[in-house]
């Protein structure tokens, strides 16, 4: 069971949260080609390692936030706000 550090509530059990998938996806302009639109909708890096993703503390404060989490070890390296830039 992961303990996820919600930026507002502190560390809580993972079953209080839902994962919202990959973060920092930028919607392209509406007149792009089908290839670019398909890449935006469906194609993902799906890394084995650090993944930047959205979480929501659905059974807590209800807030969305970003997490940098390792998909192999489940270690959470950092959490940051939705509007923060991609961490280095």
């Amino acid at each position: 069971m992961m303990h996820i550090p919600c930026p507002w509530c502190g560390a809580r059990d993972e079953n209080e949260f839902v994962c919202g998938g990959t973060s920092h996806l930028q919607r392209p302009a509406l007149d792009v080609s089908d290839e670019v639109w398909g890449a935006y909708l469906f194609f993902r890096d799906n890394p084995k390692g650090v993944h930047l993703e959205r979480w929501r503390h659905v059974h807590g404060c209800g807030q969305w936030f970003n997490a940098a989490r390792n998909t192999l070890t489940h270690e959470i390296l950092s959490v940051y706000r939705m509007t923060d830039p991609v961490p280095q």
Binding site: D13, E14, N15, C19, E53
Partner: peptide, 13 residues
């Protein structure tokens, strides 16, 4: 387990 994972163990939740 509804979050991306490469860990072959699964969540206790």
């Amino acid at each position: 387990d509804l979050f991306p994972s490469y860990a072959q163990r699964g969540s206790f939740a």
